[in-house]
Nucleic acid binder design. Sequence first.
DNA 1: ACCTTTTACTAAAACGTTTTGTCATGTATG
DNA 2: CATACATGACAAAACGTTTTAGTAAAAGGT
Lengths: 347, 347
Amino acid sequence: MMRMSEQGSTPGRATIRDVAREAGVSVTTVSHVLNGKGTASEATRRRVLAVADRLAYRAHPMARGLRRGRTGVLGLDMRPLDAIGSYLPAGVDYFMRFAGAAAVTALDHGLGLMLVPDPTRSDITQFAHGVDGYVIGDPVRDDPVLTRLLDAGVPVVSVGRDPGRPDFTDWVGPDDTYETQRVLDLLRSRGAERVALLAGTDDNAWNVDSERAYRSWARRHDMPTRVLHIPEADGEDGGRDAARRFLAGKRPRPDAIYCQTGRHAAGVLDEARRLGFSVPRDLLIATGSDAQQTRHSVPAITALDLVPEDSGKAAVELLIARLNGETAPGPIILPAKLWMRASTGDA
Amino acid sequence: MMRMSEQGSTPGRATIRDVAREAGVSVTTVSHVLNGKGTASEATRRRVLAVADRLAYRAHPMARGLRRGRTGVLGLDMRPLDAIGSYLPAGVDYFMRFAGAAAVTALDHGLGLMLVPDPTRSDITQFAHGVDGYVIGDPVRDDPVLTRLLDAGVPVVSVGRDPGRPDFTDWVGPDDTYETQRVLDLLRSRGAERVALLAGTDDNAWNVDSERAYRSWARRHDMPTRVLHIPEADGEDGGRDAARRFLAGKRPRPDAIYCQTGRHAAGVLDEARRLGFSVPRDLLIATGSDAQQTRHSVPAITALDLVPEDSGKAAVELLIARLNGETAPGPIILPAKLWMRASTGDA
DNA sequence: ACCTTTTACTAAAACGTTTTGTCATGTATG
DNA sequence: CATACATGACAAAACGTTTTAGTAAAAGGT
């Protein structure tokens, strides 16, 4: 018959006091054994572990968090949910893969991951005591959430850099310049001589760096440039609109279109075909962000896969390193994958 | 110059002791004023509120959680992440809408929502102290996670019922019988005389009830039945396979196919068209779960929208009611929306 | 033999908040 | 006048764990 703590308000759960009593040692010794601190004889250590196991003892995270000053929970900034599929360039697919990997990585380090909805609805520092740090995605220039967290002294890691904050190096993500030019090189190798860019309008580093990469690449290859800025939120409709303007206007039409977002690319493809263009024969299409839409369109669209699983994992690991006081180097540059598909004449 | 607590390990944050000192009252009085308990004179109350506001005081959730025995965090069971897009019948779209609404609802009640990844990877009760209760989705018959949580005495609400546990009424969700027959009625009103069912293989109430509804509906209308069970995880490929078996076999072909999952429906549509069937002229298609694939296919597929936002909200609210000791009635039946689209001849 | 260091262990404080228990005073009622 | 109740307030305990500070004994070095 198991004798539980006779004090307290948590019926049925063993406390460290119960373990100490049954093992015949102090609570300090139990804590030391379970946390690998202090010293304990081998016999004592074994006895404590056996009792803890038998009582199914588990430290109470509230108590532990209070004493340690750490909660064991990381916050994941979940941008405006009423705009699902719009804010996130690659749609919900990307975010789920990212969040999933982040949650699993956190768990592997014994941490929980809390969803923090729409920071514009509440003061994100409201949870500042409840989480050890935050992961936020794609900061815009002088990102207000990032600013607030940094001002509050909250550890934070972002996916992608803040273009207005070059001194902030705690971020993970791809080298957008390199990856963008990699796709452009592919388009050129497939015969493209007039590549147009369909960019987004968010003032984040991804957009900024990709456009800059496009322009310098075009200069280097003596190619004319043509850029349209369409809000990410316009999705496939935005892509259709862009296709009409690129392909049906007076100006020389491009023979390839590089779209920042997968949803724009799907719309471009849809409209180009409607206008009678054969893809990839008449027009090549590629995108900087793989998504369901680009994988399942006909023809499937060549895309950069930003591998959100890697971003999620790396972001959590960097944040944990920061929390442990490690001076791990940032930023952490992650490679993207280039999926060559039928839209560029690839199998 | 603000004088902060001179004890403690949380630099820069006001504690309740600081507020008490500056307001010239005890910490008990501050706690009572801020939590609406005990008694305090109007003058004292005003003074305390003013000081707390000036010091930007916020209760430390660890300390509060420890003393109250409640953490202010709800857990959201996030099923196998390595199967994103497969476990969830409607794919990631559904889950994000659900999780988003749940997180926002929790926040509206001052609570956080924690993602608990893949219960098969860890003991879900690991977090039992760290959360006040759980929301889990689509329990299978005698669901192991539900069982474990109930055994551990953890408050839990599920979306959909456990078909093996009729006594468990803390669930929210649609009336699958009614909603299924509603779609079937639509198919019949569009001239269908031979409706086939493409069901999933998960032994959850959604599948069980929908198939039962289909069979009784067909009996009532003197219609022949034809059912295929294809794993949800097969997605569009599973739908394509099913279409071949329904439409190209020796048996009388159906003139309508009701698919449980949107991804199956998209696959059925794809293959039916490849086989030369015109939708909706030769064949009607509908699904019990709206998704991106059903909204964006050509023609768009008539679908039941389970409105995951409503489920997420209702689940969190029911869980909160339970935590507050309220005997709110369960289950909470939520209506679905029927989106009539081109696949059934609707605009 | 003596001094220093290490091992093994303990009691108490600390973390920040909420709840419990108590006291003094004033008011209403029988 | 005596009693009961309400108001306003306070000190201390409670929640469960980790860390701090300390001691006795054993081990190692000179």
